[in-house]
Design a protein around this nucleic acid. Structure first.
Lengths: 228, 228
DNA sequence: GTGCGAAGCTACAGCCCTGTAGGAAGTGCT
DNA sequence: AGCACTTCCTACAGGGCTGTAGCTTCGCAC
């Protein structure tokens, strides 16, 4: 029997919806995260909401609230899923003790690996590379933290690589920032214009630049390197 | 006399607000754009709305709607104001026919100029550099268009500069992307960590890198340059 | 077959915001 | 002083969304 409350004059003009199939909590959470990813890929962060995810998943909002405490925790879980894969991929390219005997070769393999990973899982790398727009603060802050950590690790490897390479004597921190944002940009170019910016073109282009960067002392006695 | 409608049982419990000073339309528009900029700087794009701008300006929403047809047109006007200054600054650094007799010197002056402009007017460059978060599509699309145009012009100058420099023989389009995102990143570093990344450090760091990039043919016969 | 508990749904309350009709107030001119 | 016009405000209507109380339904165990 339908209850009515004072002031509620709306009549039930629509059939009650069928119940969604019941799922254990763990399965429901994965189901909802998959739905969230589809909404995100199709409409971006601007349009993501508990309401939109519920619709995409074919359930009602209380079901979503039963699995997550709100949009922010849900997005955090989604990031847990995708960022873990991104960080795993990065860990493969930048292991703890890499073979840096050929520093230029190492960098080129790293870049090639990043490009392959980006092409293989655009749904993982899209948010990281800022290609899914309108990200809320929870997503931006999380990704920014990951980026800082990865760049710091890269800076360390770069310092070692430049030593092995015999120079040039440069501001390693600054150089790591420049290489980092360039490689990120490679990722965006590969996703946005895959036929114009092929893997080969990007890797060859970087190889050409590395070949032009002499290890010896810069003739002008340029800036000292290293952290401040 | 206050009209009442069926179902409207709320009593007027608050004093009517005093009218805001009347302004001619042109002045009102500037007044509202100033208010919008303050909301933006303080709270970001996430919190910008006609409602928030009206409150900041000390008027009601119809006054804002009287000056602009909605949030999107208002933000476009704001961008008109700020992006014009940014594009003017860029035009100073990249004139139509620059003196490229010293290409490296030209690039260093350009970067120094960008850094100075960014420090001088952070409210103009913040949105351009993605430092004001949560930008809606109208802002993103507009800035993306400006970025493409600036990078394309830079690519042209880069090609000429490399010719004059005598090489190296590199993928100019790709290199222009790399330098472009690096200089943008310099802008962000300057705003986010001004004491760690001083103007001198950034310019000297880049000078050191340029000094290490030999103009002669790369020893490995690396990638051919130029547009596809 | 029945009962119980878990999972899902309806309906409600509320917030924030957009956009506008019509009235109120202020200013300038005669 | 009065009138007309311009600018501003109140109140209304509506959309989108969050979050939850209490009811409904389904599935499983006995």
């Amino acid at each position: 029997m339908t209850s009515t409350t004072p002031g509620n004059s709306r009549r039930r003009t629509h059939r009650k919806r069928a119940y969604a199939p019941r799922l254990p909590l763990a399965e429901r959470r994965e189901h909802l995260l998959d739905a969230a990813l589809r909404v995100l890929a199709r409409e971006g962060y601007d349009r993501i909401s508990i309401e939109a995810i519920a619709k995409e998943a074919g359930v009602t909002r209380p079901v979503v609230y039963g699995a997550f405490d709100g949009l922010e925790p849900l997005l955090n879980h989604l990031l847990d899923r995708t960022q873990r894969r991104a960080l795993d991929a990065v860990a493969r390219f930048m292991p703890e003790n890499p073979d840096l005997s050929d520093p230029d070769g190492f960098l080129l393999e790293l870049v090639a690996g990043v490009i392959d990973a980006v092409r293989a899982e655009p749904e993982v790398w899209g948010p990281v590379l800022g290609l899914i727009q309108g990200a809320p603060a929870v997503v931006r802050d999380r990704i920014e933290g990951d980026r800082r950590a990865i760049r710091a690790r890269f800076e360390h490897l770069l310092a070692v690589g430049l030593e092995i390479r015999g120079g040039p004597d440069l501001d390693v921190e600054l150089l790591s920032h420049m290489i980092f944002v360039s490689v990120e940009h490679f990722g965006r170019l590969v996703l946005e214009e895959p036929e114009r910016f092929t893997r080969e073109r990007l890797v060859d282009g970087l190889a050409g630049l590395l070949a032009a960067v002499q290890p010896g002392p810069a003739p002008d006695g340029a800036a000292a390197g290293g952290d401040r």
